[in-house]
Amino acid sequence: MKPAPFAYHRPRTLDEAVALLASEPDAKVMAGGQSLVPLLTMRLAGPATIVDVSAVEGLDTLAVDAEGVRVGAMVRHADVLASADVRRVQPLVSAALSHVAHPTIRNRGTTVGSIVHADAAAEMPVVLAVLGGSVDVVGGSGRRTIAAADLFLGLLESSLAPDEVATSAWFPALADDAGVGFAEIARRHGDYAMVGVAAHVDATAARVGYLSVNDVPTVVDVTGVDPADAGEAALAHLAPGGDVHASAAYRAQLVRVLTARVLREAHEHRQSRQGAA
């Protein structure tokens, strides 16, 4: 479990980072390393060059205002989770983050890294998708903003080009008349979930996002469906598979149970916020 040789760069500026990605063959960005380093040591990935962006200036800002939460690429999960402002402005981010791994991993892993890693079993991609957030990237062909709906292409595959660095992720604030809920079931505390569900409800719509069900984080519109039936309705858009931890039928059951729980939680959350307002 030792990685194959690679060249290592730790640029100070974004321009340098982008230039390295463009010029070095087979280069890969490293942020917190919590997903990439295991892949390297197990020799499941063998990039020729690592561009460590942890020293790049300006990537470690966590900005929260009434519009929403902007998480810089080097902001660690732990810092986002610890922020009371984040919790107030977009509670779904905090609720989901408490399920991401364990404290030691949250201390190093970044929220943006987790999103662009595009693991369908990860929490934050689904949260971004349910909330309709986006990711800002910089690359050889300039800056662009990728909406969540356009970000996740397939298993561990995002729409970032190989020479692009994600600079931040954007989670819109929770509207006054909206509520959210999150729940997941994992084999052990802190593990990747067998199924996880995030919900967002407001006066006109109800959307539910699923992790560990399809190959990509998947959002299903369940507007107008009774929470008790919403999971079954959502299954029409989902293709739960089986693995060593859960059969396909069990995953489907968890979709049913968790969808109902999370939708109720989101409705109650919405009501409690309106009561408070």
Binding site: R187, M194, H245, A246, Y250
Partner: peptide
């Protein structure tokens, strides 16, 4: 026995 297996047994 895992929860998944227990669920399958119930089925």
């Amino acid at each position: 026995i895992s929860p998944s297996e227990l669920f399958e047994l119930r089925l």
